[in-house]
Amino acid sequence: MTEKAGEEFLVMPIPLELPFQWAAGSYHGRTLREIKDNNRFVGIRCPQCKSILFPAAMVCPLCHVKVGEDWVELGEKGTVEDFAIVEMSVLDPSTGKERVESQPQAVIRLDGGAVMEHRLEEKDPQKLRVGMRVEAVFKPEGEGGKGDLTDILYFRTIEK
């Protein structure tokens, strides 16, 4: 194998973009619609193992049964189970460009039992801890909620 300087070889840049129209379906779609219309988080409970699927899905992967209609409100408050300060630049999936992830990412267990990943408002590492209480802050009305997790600006600290 020859290992020569890269400039000697032709490299063709071909950007590839593919447009998609993804259907959310009735279960995942309801979770998204509740975020958009009512600023609340809802999951669905498996009739067999009582696990909560959040976002909702049609079939419980653990029991292989259809979940039915046992919708569960999870609340907009929760506890931070884990957080991370991202010190590398990351690729923005919506633009394909580099971006700085300026807010800490966190795993938040909502009071209703389910877990979601989102960003924290608090950037000061000294003030971040596992177990801190947070609540979701939604985009103000009229600022174009899309019915996805970007309708939530971040989770803000609600107590010491």
Binding site: A23, G25, H64
Partner: peptide, 26 residues
């Protein structure tokens, strides 16, 4: 255009039938 279902839900429409016909489980 099955804009009413996610891929998994579409697949399950077919999977559910073969599970029912054979009575097989995972």
């Amino acid at each position: 255009n099955r804009g009413d279902v996610r891929e998994a839900e579409l697949a399950y429409e077919a999977i559910e039938q073969v599970l029912q016909e054979t009575g097989l489980k995972f």
